[in-house]
Design a protein around this nucleic acid. Structure first.
Lengths: 215, 215
DNA sequence: GCCGCCATCGACCGATCGGCTGATGTGCCT
DNA sequence: AGGCACATCAGCCGATCGGTCGATGGCGGC
């Protein structure tokens, strides 16, 4: 360890100063933790991590400066000693799986109780995986359905529906346009949501463009 | 005119056979009209138009085979004699303006009464512009707000919101993510919808990708 | 023959969205 | 000083969406 005896050294990464201060205060006032520094973005996080050599990095995923996931992946790639504990606001975050795949040791929600946070950091420092219940349940369902973020091809009908969705067409309009019922349109949508690993039409359109299905 | 005296010759373009049959029957049973042929898509429409030289082309905009708008633009570009009367299902169609800009002589809804259709075709044959009331009102509002389909740049905040929308984030989540209220998120959305000329988040994401704002 | 994928439909429900009206404050440009 | 774009917020409302059951039929592979 880089810090004395049982103390766990931390690097806090979040684009919100308020959050950084909150975390810093929380851990500085608790025994057994040392906050080495802070970073506001992915790149800065990598610099600080290299310079400070923390035991655990508390990291938010969503940062304007850029990829929390990318930073985690980089740390993993270079075999960094630090364990990354993702601290995010919502379990609905679409980057949950990518973050874990990238090498995050744990994934917690910001609204977790203080004690849970402390426990989680200690666990992470020892290399044990820590997941908040909500995230854990999402993970199992993701494993149960590996296609959750996979490349399952869309059927012709599904692509047809998706194309109309991208034009701002409502389900009812799509139904009449395609000579099917609204229920069927919704069925196609639910299916293609699953295949694309998204949860609404906006994200479906985005993913479709990313994969070249549209545009 | 290519047909005898007062008869107006027609080309019917629609991807739905049912619709084509319906239109054909309607016009064949009415005096003063001659249906020269049909086409199921944009390209086929261009071929038939060149071969048959109709007075008026009745064209649906939404066709899987591809661009009704593109076909109209092509006809205009080569200075075709035929007048194009767009016959679509919904006035909400996002291609209304592009179609008219491309050179469509008229724009009608399919649920228009028979007589209105006949009148419209005769008017189109004479080169007079025909718009269904709903479309007309949309047009004036579009003129009143030229940015409706323009390239108004998005503000930084709007792009930020849009990026989250593309990830499937709900308004409430966006609000907390950005430390603003849900009302504000909705305001940003309404504004960027207007700037992009769309009416929902899915279409906004699509347009954003088309214009390189996202991805 | 059975199984899986696809397409089709119905019904219900809560959550969310989008439209509307209107308001406040800030900064920038003229 | 006045105008204008931007960002912020409130409340209300109907329309729409997305989820979750379940069900049918066709088609192709095994």
């Amino acid at each position: 360890m880089s810090s004395d005896e049982s103390s766990i050294s931390l690097l806090i990464v979040d684009d919100h100063p308020v959050v950084r201060d909150g975390l810093r205060g929380m851990f500085e006032s608790a025994p057994g933790f040392v906050v080495l520094g802070e970073a506001a973005g992915g790149e800065e996080a990598l610099e600080r991590a290299a310079a400070l050599d923390p035991d655990v990095i508390l990291m938010d995923l969503r940062m304007p400066g850029g990829g929390g996931v990318a930073a985690i992946a980089h740390l993993t790639r270079i075999g960094a000693r630090a364990k990354v504990l993702v601290l995010t606001t919502y379990d609905t975050d679409s980057d949950t799986l990518p973050a874990i795949e990238a090498g995050a040791t744990g994934y917690l929600l910001k609204d977790a109780p203080r004690d849970e946070l402390f426990t989680a950091v200690r666990a992470a420092a020892e290399g044990r995986t820590v997941l908040s219940p909500a995230v854990a349940s999402r993970l199992v369902s993701a494993v149960r359905t590996p296609k959750a973020h996979g490349n399952e091809p869309l059927s012709a009908r599904e692509r047809e529906v998706l194309a109309l969705v991208a034009k701002g067409t409502s389900n009812r309009e799509i139904a009449r346009e395609l000579f099917i019922s609204e229920a069927t349109v919704k069925t196609h949508l639910t299916h293609l949501y699953a295949k694309l690993g998204v949860k609404d039409r906006a994200a479906a359109v985005a993913t479709a463009y990313e994969r070249g299905i549209l545009g």
